[in-house]
């Protein structure tokens, strides 16, 4: 565990908890894409199947359980909570998220390190995570005005990506044989998807204005 990895995990954790806390306290999920949240629930469910087969550390297992629990809680709130579900921007959140799932599954069947059930699902989760933010970014563009919490959520997620890339560079330099092309390329694609959002986020922060994305 290096400092970049820890910072990445903590911003990732903060992003999910900020979102869950927002939904729980103000009983509103306005501006949040259910499609993206469902994709993340699928990402965690397929990636963390190894909690049953391998043990790395208490930290690792605990974090996996928190990510699984919080992502499924968010989906539950948005779909079934009687107050929260009414605040969901159903008409605006129209991204066909299944069109992301199938190509990712196909790609994982074709490009992977080992052809085993767990390994293919693990690879699938990497590909899916790379694009899972897309419905959320589309929703942000459509509603244009973003409340602070939704902006912070995407900002923290982007921070998590940035720290993970630093973590990979660090591990590549310090650990022998640390080469993971699939993880790196998927991670890089994911980080690039945030670049556009970050540009507008910093612009609004610099001008001390409410974040507005161009149509």
């Amino acid at each position: 565990m290096n400092i970049f990895r820890l910072a990445g995990d903590m911003t990732h954790l903060a992003s999910v908890l900020v979102l869950l806390l927002k939904i729980h306290t103000i009983k509103s999920c306005a501006g949040v894409s259910l499609k993206t949240q469902e994709l993340y629930a699928i990402v965690f469910a397929t990636r963390y199947l190894d909690i049953f087969t391998s043990f790395y550390s208490i930290y690792n297992t605990l974090m996996k359980l928190i990510f699984l629990g919080s992502s499924f809680s968010i989906v539950w709130y948005m779909r079934y909570h009687k107050t929260v579900r009414r605040t969901y921007d159903r008409e605006q959140d129209t991204f066909r998220h299944w069109f992301l799932v199938l190509p990712c599954l196909l790609l994982a069947l074709l490009i992977h390190e080992k052809f085993t059930f767990l390994e293919v699902l693990w690879t699938f989760s990497l590909y899916l995570e790379a694009v899972a933010i897309l419905p959320q970014l589309v929703l942000l563009q459509r509603t244009r005005n973003i409340d602070n919490l939704t902006g912070q959520y995407v900002f923290l997620l982007g921070g998590y990506r940035g720290f993970y890339i630093l973590n990979w560079i660090y591990r590549y330099l310090t650990e022998p044989h640390f080469v993971h092309w699939i993880t790196w390329i998927a991670g890089l694609v994911q980080t690039l998807l945030y670049a556009d959002f970050f540009y507008y986020y910093f612009q609004s922060w610099k001008n001390n204005k409410k974040l507005q994305l161009p149509a």
């Binding site: 990895r5 995990d9 990732h12 190894d50 391998s54 790395y56 550390s57 690792n60 974090m63 996996k64 990510f67 390190e113 693990w122 993970y164 973590n167 591990r171 650990e175 044989h177 640390f178 080469v179 993971h180 993880t183």
Partner: peptide, 10 residues
């Protein structure tokens, strides 16, 4: 040789 350590990340 392929390292398995990438799987220790979240």
């Amino acid at each position: 040789y392929k390292s398995e350590t990438g799987h220790d990340e979240l």
